[in-house]
């Protein structure tokens, strides 16, 4: 079956099989390998993408359900060769260790900051509670989220 959707700002028509998940579509069909497969049951958040403005685990969405939707992955963040302020904040705050969870963390952060440009620490923790990291201990990650919010607010001034 064919579906039409927007991925990282580009309109795409994609051939999928009915048993494919959004995760499989993004990784295996479109080659967007920032989307990681971790637990495969919506627990770890490694496969987080933004679907119609909201963070979702792409392992619990069937690909055919994404017909007509607007999907954003980490590949869609950098513009004109420059990292997105969220990506830069993750690097500058040492919020990356092995890196496997990082794209999911960044997409949850992006979804949060699209809705709430000035989150409290508690709001940042809640937005990322569905993203598991086994390396960093979370403190640098939360620091990165709050730093990214500051950078984006400063950019907007």
């Amino acid at each position: 079956m064919n579906i039409q959707l927007t991925v990282n700002g580009q309109d795409r028509t994609v051939e999928i099989s009915p048993d494919m998940r959004l995760l499989d579509l993004l990784r295996d069909v479109l080659g967007l390998i920032s989307v990681k497969e971790g637990c495969s049951e919506g627990e770890c958040g490694a496969c987080t993408v933004i679907m119609d403005g909201k963070a979702v685990t792409s392992c619990t969405v069937m690909a055919f359900q994404a017909e007509g939707s607007d999907i954003m992955t980490t590949e869609g963040l950098a513009q004109r060769g420059e990292l997105d302020p969220i990506q830069q904040a993750f690097m500058d705050n040492d919020a990356v260790q092995c890196g496997f969870c990082t794209p999911g963390m960044i997409m949850s952060t992006k979804a949060l900051l699209m809705q709430n440009p000035d989150p409290s620490e508690e709001e940042a923790r809640r937005a990322l509670e569905g993203n598991i990291c086994r390396c960093t201990g979370y403190i640098p990650i939360i620091n990165a989220v709050l730093d990214a919010a500051r950078r984006l607010r400063d950019e907007g001034l």
Partner: peptide, 8 residues
């Protein structure tokens, strides 16, 4: 669940 689960 998590933010992602509540969104879906």
């Amino acid at each position: 669940g998590s933010t992602q689960i509540r969104n879906r």
